[in-house]
Nucleic acid binder design. Structure first.
Lengths: 345, 345
DNA sequence: TGCGCTTACGTTACCGGTAACGCTCAATTT
DNA sequence: AAATTGAGCGTTACCGGTAACGTAAGCGCA
């Protein structure tokens, strides 16, 4: 079964274990052992097999391997609400970095905040029998809760740490992220130490889901007063912040402190105030969340909560893989945040 | 806190075709036909099989399907240089949207601009026998060129349209993206119609690769003069633009027009100029590339080249899938760009 | 010399699907 | 009435690996 001389180096994906074995004069099983780095072969055999595999350009077939032994699937399914903004795309970068470094491959899905989309995606992703699943923590429909709870593969819940939000994840599911209530509380606390007066908050709502509710609650708790709120039916964006600030401030001129869902919006608001001659932080103090790069080059550096997004992804991947491979790992891991005291508040 | 052996539970998805078939009183093959939507069964049989599959919560095993028929792999491997910034993450979002809508799954890899990383990733991704491959067009090492050229699955080259850049992609490979030379030329042309004087350009270099070279060439061609250039060994960022503008302007005070690798950097430069009291566009005109959202809320709207990033991804996925399924498709497709005449130039 | 233990393999039986082909039987054609 | 057809379904043989088990040769040791 040797490959004709003329075919060398072509059609890589046609080279199978059987061909390697034939060329090397051993059984398929022996070739398999050598190529997997299992033991049970002599140095001579190993060298011969590796030589042939290298010469023929053998690429192992993970599909067959995965079918053959249920345990050897190295696919990790990752569902993210969105990718277009820095937050989740950097988390994904962290996830991918770590996964790739230990030989795993991510299957990625963008499922928004819609239960139905998520449900469908989960089903098609599970058809690949991933060895692990990554989702973001959030309230879920009963169907999705049931599906996630019925799984035997490890599930990692990203970003949201709180277990008591009704996210339908069983207590065996892993969590890596931050405590959003605490992040909001910290910011509210800091602002209340420097300013008095009415607080305002601008966030967004997507598919009937209000994003960042825990942070808002924490903020109000820390600030010691409830905030005037405005929820835009939109994605978070610079423009949403610009527009939101305009709306909220004109409706509530007494607002002294403005908190935002994230830095994109806070920067937009900053631009709005700058355009309108509203003094920051003299007239209105502004705070965001996330610690995006843009904050650091603004005319006034943004007061925000810095989150190590790459780190969240890496740690999530690491813990998930540990669980997959049977290494003990903490159920919940808090990455923590840093309050960035900028010039806008 | 750690739960070592919780992996041991019952497998939810061990419902196999055989069980469905048994329950429904038909052969595996018939159940397979029904579940795949192939033909060759009666309405009665179909209803029975579907009922059983629904009741037992059958999730098809794509791994087995892919092994069984070489053609049925619905995995698409996607290699991106980075994910943290808006550009590639939005392209990925577009890719994923389209792929998911037609039942395909993306396997994602972040390979930077390093040939070795890309080579390793390609090999591990190919082990999943994807039905298509997406990479970004750029100069490649001989090994990577050879690998890509030896493949029998369709390859989609993203972003860079030019065929004559030494990217090692065979002429059968698909391309979707924009003409970067033309985009630069257009901008240079526009700026030369409004300003005279020395031009400057700030870009970045990563892993010995100068990014956006074609745009720079086009820009110089359109502007009618070569530019003072500065290449930072860094990722593109607001801060890089801030710093780059500072460096280049102090070294060449005569610069009248500043062009940047992308909008992130242009915005950073804008901030620098604003901080230093340099009038825009009175003293220096600034132009970026990409059309990021941030540009539209700046105190002065950014002059830039708008690119529909989501569209690039969607179209790339669409063309690739067409090729995979044998539908005729243009080899090269230009998404086009729009010159955005803002207030900074 | 015979017994057990290793080492280094080979054999067999799957994993869960699908392609290819074959069979049956009722409806239609000749 | 015999021949032809095709819808509907079953059988067989894989796909390319891996787990589990079997076995022959070599070695130490009683």
């Amino acid at each position: 079964m040797s490959i004709p001389e003329s075919n060398r180096g072509q059609k890589k994906s046609n080279v199978s274990l059987a061909e390697i074995a034939g060329e090397a004069g051993v059984s398929r099983m022996t070739a398999s052992r050598v190529l997997r780095g299992a033991d049970g072969y002599s140095v001579k055999t190993r060298d011969k097999v590796l030589e042939v595999a290298g010469r023929l350009g053998y690429v192992p077939n993970r599909i067959a391997a995965a079918l053959g032994s249920e345990a050897s699937n190295s696919l990790v399914a990752i569902a993210l609400p969105t990718l277009g903004r820095e937050l989740y795309s950097q988390i994904l970068e962290g996830l991918e970095n770590k996964l790739a470094s230990v030989g795993y491959q991510p299957i990625v899905g963008v499922v928004g905040y819609d239960d139905d989309t998520e449900f469908k995606w989960l089903n098609s992703a599970l058809a690949w029998r991933p060895c692990g699943l990554v989702v973001t923590g959030r309230p879920r429909s009963a169907a999705n809760q049931a599906l996630l709870s019925s799984l035997t593969v490890p599930v990692m819940q990203l970003w949201n740490l709180k277990a008591d939000t009704d996210d339908g994840l069983a207590s065996t599911h892993l969590r890596v992220g931050i405590d959003h209530f605490e992040a909001g509380r910290q910011m509210g606390d800091y602002l209340s130490s420097r300013y008095r007066g009415k607080a305002g908050y601008v966030g967004v709502r997507q598919a009937d889901t209000v994003l960042g509710q825990d942070r808002l609650s924490g903020f109000e708790s820390g600030y010691g007063a409830s905030a005037e709120t405005l929820f835009l039916n939109d994605r978070s964006s610079f423009y949403a912040g610009y527009y939101g600030a305009e709306q909220l401030l004109s409706a509530n001129p007494a607002i002294r402190v403005l908190y935002f869902l994230d830095d994109n919006m806070a920067v937009g608001a900053l631009m709005f105030c700058q355009a309108k001659g509203i003094k920051i932080p003299g007239d209105v103090a502004i705070a965001g969340f996330g610690g995006l790069d843009i904050g650091s080059v603004m005319p006034a550096t943004l007061t925000t909560t810095r989150v190590r997004r790459l780190r969240v992804g890496k740690q999530a991947a690491e813990n998930l893989i540990k669980r997959v491979t049977g290494v003990p790992v903490p159920l919940v891991q808090d990455i923590g945040v840093d309050l960035e005291k900028g010039e806008t508040a």
